[in-house]
Design a protein around this nucleic acid. Sequence first.
DNA 1: ATATATTGTTGTAATATTACAATAAATATA
DNA 2: TATATTTATTGTAATATTACAACAATATAT
Lengths: 86, 86
Amino acid sequence: MKTRILYNRIAVLREERGISRKELAEKIGVNFQTVGYLERCEYNPSLDLAFKISEYFNLPIEFIFSTKPMKHMSQEILELKTAKDR
Amino acid sequence: MKTRILYNRIAVLREERGISRKELAEKIGVNFQTVGYLERCEYNPSLDLAFKISEYFNLPIEFIFSTKPMKHMSQEILELKTAKDR
DNA sequence: ATATATTGTTGTAATATTACAATAAATATA
DNA sequence: TATATTTATTGTAATATTACAACAATATAT
């Protein structure tokens, strides 16, 4: 199957939690370099690994990964706030 | 990474739509035998393939795939209906 | 009953993912 | 500055996924 590039928010989410790739890698049970590959979108995770990341951040897979480039979370917040008072 | 078994509802969802593995395979762009492997949980899909299946059925990945054995949809409906009148 | 389509199974090959090592570059911290 | 930590990059090997072929078993339809 010709694999599409998938986009993700791993780097920002990791930053929010203030943890290093090494720490995240340990939590989800992969090599720390694998986290690097994922953050740079050099390859896609398996569904199993996506679930582990989703469980660690306690966020749905669709919030972390997307087939289309992701909006910045900051932007998304502002849009949601604006939508509220219409 | 030691891969966990992931469970899925592909067979029932496909049945609901009344389509064969071959048809589903064509829609999501994989070999029809790959659908068989997935339905029998003989291996997990890539995240990319999970997204394609999710897009085809128009359902979130978490509704189709799970790390724990899935409740039957029939059962889930009844529980939701019961929860409503408490 | 006999075609036809669908599913299950086995095996091999190609591609994608993950692991791991080694080293350089960049960042933070003492 | 010097030291330690984190990140980036490259290369090789192991494992997992997908493709594909071939055939048997079931089910559907004519």
